[in-house]
Nucleic acid binder design. Structure first.
Lengths: 158, 158
DNA sequence: GTCTATATGAGAATGAATATCACTTTCGAT
DNA sequence: ATCGAAAGTGATATTCATTCTCATATAGAC
């Protein structure tokens, strides 16, 4: 789902605009990212998927590509302590104001759209002098599936 | 600032309550944590400071202690992708509803108290079926000091 | 096509965090 | 107070994600 070609073309334009060279390796990575929107793949996941499309690509190149794409805003990196980071293509639609719901049962990551933080950021800047350039809001807990799977246990909790 | 002895005593009680053994090593780590509230030290920082109080302690013990203390809620671990995690004693006062302002200039971490998320959590649980057990809200940007130091550059940004 | 800065692949290196294992200590039961 | 099983410790090896190194290859401006 989603227009893979369109997203890749858009990303390639952004690369040129930012003086990043467009190489076959980077295109392959972009295609993988565009085909996996919402999946939040790890660098390893992306590496393995890119291998099928561009055999011989090195893991280091995947990391370098993701890093370069992140620096110019084409991808977002979601840093999860241990267990490595996850990456996602910043789609045209969708905007940047989504936060993550991270299931501590199965590890699945889903998204939640919300703009509420704008107001809070202004309040923080005024009261602390801290100039905010980015934020990260995550919720940890159990997704519907994992709750289902755990049925039979205690349902209420004080 | 802050009552180190009181915080350590409180933490030790919590340890007993949670079947964690109270060892000299753990007490030393707790003292270091209580003396560094607000400093957000890394495991290495804590290790070095604890060494002065309890020479011979191993780095692994510091990690194990921090991990054990986190599991029972005595300390909070702030995971920062690379550059390792930071730790903080959960003080009696202060509560758990503070978020972090992380300066990408100097790395300093400060706090911001806010309760706004309660309402949002309920909304998410109702609309997605995701049962939230914890959350993490961080703001990245430049602290007042770093902004000061950078004076003279561009002030506005589209 | 030429040229030069940039990208790539392979594998070594890094660094935070964890595992291993023999030894020691805590703390409840006696 | 002492005993003993369970838990904790120190030293160090190990893991694993990520980055670095360096020789080679290629993109893209001219």
């Amino acid at each position: 789902m989603g227009d893979v070609k369109r997203e890749v073309a858009r990303a390639i334009n952004l690369m040129s605009d930012n003086d990043l060279r467009v190489t076959p390796e980077r295109e392959a990575v972009l295609e993988v990212l565009a085909e996996n929107i919402g999946a939040h793949p790890s660098a390893e996941d992306i590496y393995l998927a890119t291998m099928e499309r561009h055999p011989g690509i090195g893991l280091a190149t995947v990391y370098r590509t993701l890093d370069a794409l992140e620096r110019v805003g084409i991808v977002s990196k979601l840093e999860l302590g241990a267990s490595g980071s996850r990456y996602e293509l910043n789609t045209d639609v969708g905007g940047h104001f989504h936060h993550h719901l991270i299931c501590i049962g199965c590890g699945r990551i889903t998204e939640f759209n919300q703009d509420l933080l704008e107001h809070l950021e202004k309040e923080i800047e005024d009261s602390t002098g801290f100039q905010i350039t980015d934020h990260s809001l995550r919720f940890y807990g159990y997704c519907a599936k994992c709750r289902e799977a755990a049925k039979g246990g205690e349902t209420s909790r004080s």
